[in-house]
Design a protein around this nucleic acid. Structure first.
Length: 419
RNA sequence: CGGGGCAUGGUGUAACGGCUAACAUACUCGCUUUGGGAGCGAGCGACUCUGGGUUCGAAUCCCAGUGCCCCGACCA
């Protein structure tokens, strides 16, 4: 990609004070644009980051044996009434809209109801189970108060996975697998060692759920992190949990945290309410045992921005960066242009995603923009960048060094995540 | 849903109730410059959120609305 053709531009001025750090950084660097409170447009650079996250998620969902589908955003009132979740008393963050010809539709904030009803037409026998399906879709929640940039929006991108099992045991086994899978996803997304698996309240249909919490000041949740093993306990259930559920340790550190994912055991609450039953081996009707598992994709992007930055801008983990390499052509001159073009083509040929700053701008501006955009690897081409065959390479935020192209390609590819 | 704050060119800000609403940045043109947001010059760009009111006179004071931000409550 040639930077001269990138439609978005970085901004010299940050958005006004008071905005969340992730929103300020990502707006300045041209990744997102706020359309309304809690509603963001993802510009080309931002969309690339979302796609990287989605790619990591799809790989892991595939490994779990889950199939991707896409449910509707518009929700039929009737199915939600059957589970008692249509009324604004039960769920206060519905977006609802009138339908011509009479009636109302809701904009989906989750999809247990329509999916469970859909499954009643597909699941008849124990042979049809288990079923694991997921989607990556825009969700709508009419929050009382949108805030914190991408961390809590009224419209946001979410991955939601649902499981339908024959028994409690089968469900528990899958639930455990998802827990491991989620940790791998967050590791790959650059949050290795930063996620606390946290015990939280489970709602009316199971005692507990698990949340994936990233300790950060910008977080809205309060968790207690076991000092021995790092497991978390959500503040909402801390009173009933004196010792760590994982290791039995008794001392905790209180932290604010961002919830990047959660997994729920739903039991038969929805399958019973909506008549999702199957015949078991002995011909007896049983309700499917369900689970739901979410990851806030856009929130994850905001979380990463909130965690990894310096005064100059974001520093993306390699797997999420919009490009693998930022190629900076500095100093002008026909020879520099020729070399930059040559290197650009070589890097592309090695299957790297390259943003080539070919603009007619001064070096200082290019470096400043590159810092802001935060691509992890940078190759600088100019009069001082050495001989043919060698590249001047620098990691975001570090000093540059010279290395042969082949060596650089290996280093840059090690962390990439191709979409 | 309670409490507080803010609303002025694209962006960030300034302006005592009183001249043609100022500055920076961005953008356009010219000259100079060219490895860490260069310099000079000339331009373009604002019904000062909306609607009322007070006043000879309102960006400025008052009322209402809307929007945005923050704190708290809420949050599958």
């Amino acid at each position: 990609m040639k930077q001269s053709r990138l439609f978005e531009k970085t901004r010299r001025e940050a958005p006004a004070e008071g905005e969340a750090e992730n929103a300020r950084l990502l707006t300045r660097a041209g990744f997102i644009h706020k359309e309304l409170a809690g509603v963001y447009t993802f510009l080309p650079l931002g969309l690339k980051v979302l796609r990287k996250i989605e790619h990591i998620i799809r790989q892991e969902m595939g490994a779990l044996g889950a199939e991707e589908m896409r449910l509707t955003v518009l929700q039929d009132r009737g199915v939600w009434e059957k589970t008692g979740r249509w009324s604004d008393q039960a769920v206060d963050n519905w977006f609802k809209t009138k339908v011509r010809g009479g009636g109302e539709a809701g904009l989906g904030f989750t999809h247990e109801e329509p999916l469970t009803r859909l499954m009643t037409g597909h699941i008849r026998s124990w042979r049809d189970l288990p079923v694991f399906v997921y989607q990556i879709q825009t969700k709508f929640r009419n929050e009382e108060r949108a805030r914190s940039g991408l961390l809590r929006g009224r419209e946001f991108l979410m991955k939601d996975l649902y499981s339908f099992c024959r028994s409690r045991e089968e469900h528990e086994e899958f639930y455990g697998k998802v827990k491991q899978s989620y940790l791998r996803i967050f590791d790959k997304a650059g949050l290795s060692g930063k996620v606390a698996v946290t015990l939280a309240s489970g709602g009316s249909f199971s005692k507990h759920s698990h949340e994936f919490q990233v300790p950060a000041e910008a977080g809205e949740d309060t968790i207690h992190v076991c000092e021995k093993c790092g497991t978390g306990v959500n503040d909402e259930i801390k009173s009933e949990t004196a010792v760590c559920p994982e290791c039995g340790g008794g001392s905790f550190k209180k932290r604010k945290a961002i919830e990047v994912g959660n997994i729920f055991s739903l039991g038969t609450r929805f399958s019973e309410a909506l008549g999702l039953s199957f015949d078991d081996e002995s011909g007896r009707a049983k309700s499917a045992v369900m689970g739901s598992y979410g990851i806030g994709v856009s929130r994850l992007m905001g979380t990463v921005a909130e965690l990894f930055y310096d005064q100059k801008g974001v520093i993306w983990p390699p797997a999420l960066a919009p490009f693998d390499v930022h190629l900076l052509e500095v100093g002008g001159g026909a020879e520099t242009r020729r070399r930059a073009e040559e290197i650009y083509k070589e890097l592309l040929a090695h299957d790297l995603e390259v943003l080539h700053d070919d603009r007619e701008a001064r070096a200082g501006e290019k470096f400043a923009d590159a810092d802001l955009i935060g691509v992890p690897w940078r190759v600088i081409v100019g009069e001082k960048s050495g001989q043919e065959g060698e590249l001047e390479v620098e990691r975001r935020g570090e000093k540059s060094s010279m290395m042969p192209l082949s060596k650089f390609v290996r280093a840059a590819k090690s962390g990439q995540s191709h979409v």
